[in-house]
Amino acid sequence: MVTIAAIIYEPGSSIKNKTGTWRTFRPILDTNKCVKCENCYIFCPEGAIQEDENGNFKIDYDYCKGCLICMNECPVNAITKVREEK
């Protein structure tokens, strides 16, 4: 049922939309090379790079659209790309 005035009561419900399927290139983050400058974290338009339980940055491929901004902005080339197998 459509809510009154189509109001959306669930904040951040866009998480249901897994944009990872949009990718043609997959960024791969090498934790060993990462110096935690936070560039990839702050510039990702999807907020798809978050810290894991060990405090390492990790890419959430459910949402990563493969724009490769993170790769472009990594000062130590810790992020590389591979073509997505479809």
Binding site: S14, I15, K16, N17, E38, P45, E46, Y63, K65
Partner: peptide, 20 residues
């Protein structure tokens, strides 16, 4: 830690890949 970690803007939006 330089930037606040709270994400108030959720993923799953339909902006183009690389949207500013």
């Amino acid at each position: 830690m330089q930037f606040p970690r709270e994400e108030l803007f959720a993923p799953g939006h339909r902006g183009c890949a690389g949207c500013g």
